[in-house]
């Protein structure tokens, strides 16, 4: 078959396409970074995992040491059992503490491991016993309001709450008149 310039151009075109695909896979996607070599898996039970998802990072001292493999619900104990895969290079003591943290204020959730002091190390299939649940913001706000309410209940006998309301409405009125542009 004769070679033509069209063949050359189509070849270049397809090569560009393959290169773009490789670029997307390697540079943009997580095809390279999700591989963490040989791993061992341990489980940890949480009462609440928040919005933790499979493939979420497992970090210790801020370094990614593994990934969350899967999350299942234990219907006997009513808790979530999280299986995490940790890179074989990293060894953790048996009394390691597992927390669920949030990256930043709005970021994704990850598992944080804090090493304990035991001599024994975690092995494949072991269970992390010391865990701390994900922080649920609504729960925290609820507790805060509850504690505030109980505080103010103790105070309310000495100071009537209507005074605060009066002050507020008075201020609102003054701004309405005082800040008028004309």
């Amino acid at each position: 078959m004769d070679r033509t310039t069209i063949d050359l151009w189509v070849g270049i075109f397809v090569a560009f396409g393959v290169a773009a695909m490789l670029g997307l896979a390697m540079k943009v996607g997580n095809l390279t970074s999700s591989k963490i070599g040989p791993t061992y898996s341990v489980t940890a039970a949480f009462e609440n995992v928040g919005s933790l998802k499979p493939h979420a990072p497992v970090k210790s001292a801020g370094v990614v040491v593994g990934r969350v493999d899967n999350i299942v619900f234990d219907s006997k104990k009513y808790e979530a059992v999280v299986t995490i895969k940790i890179d074989k290079r990293y060894v953790f003591p048996k009394d390691t503490f597992a927390n669920i943290y949030t990256a930043g204020l709005l970021g994704e959730q990850y598992v944080g491991l804090e090493a304990g002091g035991a001599d024994d190390t975690l092995k494949n299939g072991d269970k992390i016993t010391q865990t701390q649940d994900a922080i649920v913001l609504e729960k925290m706000i609820g507790q805060f309001l509850f504690s505030k309410a109980s505080e103010s209940k103790a105070d309310s006998k000495t100071e009537p709450s209507t005074k605060a309301v009066d002050a507020k409405s008075g201020r609102a009125k003054s701004t309405e008149l005082g800040d008028a542009p004309f």
């Binding site: 997307l24 896979a25 996607g29 997580n30 095809l31 390279t32």
Partner: peptide, 12 residues
């Protein structure tokens, strides 16, 4: 950040 959040199968 791009590599952490773009999934090869689900997105690309």
């Amino acid at each position: 950040q791009m590599q952490a959040n773009v999934d090869f199968r689900a997105d690309i």
